[in-house]
């Protein structure tokens, strides 16, 4: 068990980070912090992909024109994570734009206040 943790701590860490993000998303009343929670949740997954690509003793996947480069980290997950990060940024932007609009309409960023305001209407 200890050995497994020592060699695979990256995966364990990913699930901890994901849990933190999920908890923030559910428990925090502030809409902006909820969105930060979503970001944390996604970042955990990005780190997971990077960890998957790691090769013991491998170098960066830049292939020289001559000679044998030896073991290399897999480049595919890195490309995937880059794409996913871009998607994540777009999502954050749309989310923040929506929050700005909610703030303009209701004058609050807190979910519980928002629920009261909407119930009154």
């Amino acid at each position: 068990m200890i050995e497994l943790l020592a060699s695979r701590y990256a995966y364990a860490l990913m699930f901890v980070l994901m849990g933190v993000g999920m908890y923030m998303m559910i428990a925090n009343q502030n809409l902006v912090k909820k969105l930060i929670g979503v970001n944390l949740f996604q970042t955990a997954i990005f780190l997971f992909f990077v960890a998957v690509a790691y090769v013991e003793g491998g170098s960066a996947p830049i292939v020289p024109t001559e000679g044998d480069p030896g073991a290399m980290a897999s480049p595919l997950p890195h490309v995937i994570v880059l794409t996913a990060i871009v998607v994540g940024i777009a999502l954050t932007a749309v989310g923040l734009a929506l929050i700005v609009r909610i703030y303009a309409e209701y004058g609050t960023l807190r979910e519980d206040t928002l629920r009261e305001v909407r119930a009154d209407e």
């Binding site: 998303m25 809409l31 909820k34 969105l35 979503v38 999502l91 749309v94 989310g95 929506l98 929050i99 609009r101 909610i102 309409e105 928002l114 909407r118």
Partner: peptide, 11 residues
């Protein structure tokens, strides 16, 4: 309301 439901959907 549409912004609130869109944010809910987004998350």
């Amino acid at each position: 309301e549409s912004a609130v439901s869109a944010l809910k959907y987004l998350i």
